[in-house]
Amino acid sequence: MSMREFSLRVNGVERIVSAPPMARLLDVLRQELGLTGTKEGCGEGECGSCSVLINGELVNSCLVPIAQAAGTSITTIEGVGAHTKLHPVQQAFLQCGGAQCGICTPGMILAAVHLLEKCPNPTREQIEEGLNGNLCRCTGYMRIFAAVEKAATTIEAGVPG
């Protein structure tokens, strides 16, 4: 079938992409928009390495057809923070050793950002639950939990990242 044009807001910028409507948001982000920070680990909603936010909600971009993302506002890892201004979650991942091989990290950071938006002072259990769709094979999660706890404190103290 034919390609169609879809407009969506990606990391605050209006974008128009041309793609078949069943193209996965993941592929559009990576291949059409060059936003390769979003990763593919499984393609079946299991690993979370393709996590992005759609209108502030955490989703697996491998399971979203682009037609359903049209008109929404999307945040990928590239929109979370910049070299010169890390998001507190990114800063905390760096400091606490939350990233090892780094392949789960973009998705994990988005899940953490999402969690802290919904629940600014999470308990350990809430952190464990908030990240439960993001598999990490390297860290055993402990440093990641520590990073989320640290980021929560930083954000609460209002320290700019």
Partner: peptide, 8 residues
């Protein structure tokens, strides 16, 4: 995906 249609 080029072989599939999705209407909204």
């Amino acid at each position: 995906s080029a072989e599939c249609e999705l209407l909204t």
